[in-house]
Amino acid sequence: MTQPPRQDWGEDVLGRAAAWKARGDDVALATVVTTWGSSPRPVGSQLAVHGDGRFVGSVSGGCIEGAVVLEALKTIDDGEPRLLDFGVTHEQAWEVGLACGGKVQVFVEKLQ
């Protein structure tokens, strides 16, 4: 017997994204591409967002997932990839920040 490959404590983000897509649902992927200072999730961490707002995975300790999902829904709508910056210096722009004082850049793209 073999175990399913696991990227992230058993939550198969990419597998879930592929399964949603395979049944014809809209899906966006969000990926942490850069971090500065202390940030809760390492580069490469991912979130799969369903067109109805559901998501699996994480790109932070829960600080920015809500905002990322909203942006992902825009990307699902217009098909345009987005590069998002979160962190102390962008607090006012996004009205969400990382309590840890770190910064994180998240790439959002639609699964075509």
Binding site: P5, L14, G15, A17, A18, K21, L29, E109, K110, L111, Q112
Partner: peptide
């Protein structure tokens, strides 16, 4: 990302 790329990525992972 294209679905085909994701499928290929998952095959490599498997």
């Amino acid at each position: 990302m294209k679905s085909a790329t994701l499928e290929e990525l998952l095959r490599h992972r498997e």
